[in-house]
Amino acid sequence: MSDTNEQFGKQTRQDDPLMIAEDWMKAGRDVAIATVVETWGSAPRPVGSHLVIDAEGNFEGSVSGGCVEGAVVAEAADVLAQGTPRMLEFGVADETAWEVGLSCGGRIKVFVERLG
């Protein structure tokens, strides 16, 4: 997608994570929402991108184009259980970032919260 679409008009179609989150909520599923709130260097997804996760670990959207989604999904399970939001940070300076695969040279901060 072009840069135009990154700033103007995040998708409002079927594959839109926030629309999916609303559908899941209406279907009675517990939903966590992860949001990229800061990036440094060559982060693959722009600030404001979402990943939505349900209690079974199903997820839609992306916060890093696949690099750290696994770790975010795991944290989301705790956030869903406890209800308190948390801030996650991934980057090459961080051992865990290497482990989870963010080897592309960027750093990202991801806010994970429960819907409701």
């Binding site: 008009g9 995040k10 409002t12």
Partner: peptide, 9 residues
């Protein structure tokens, strides 16, 4: 955190 949603042009 301000998450801006502008309509697609």
């Amino acid at each position: 955190f301000l998450n801006v949603h502008l309509p697609p042009p």
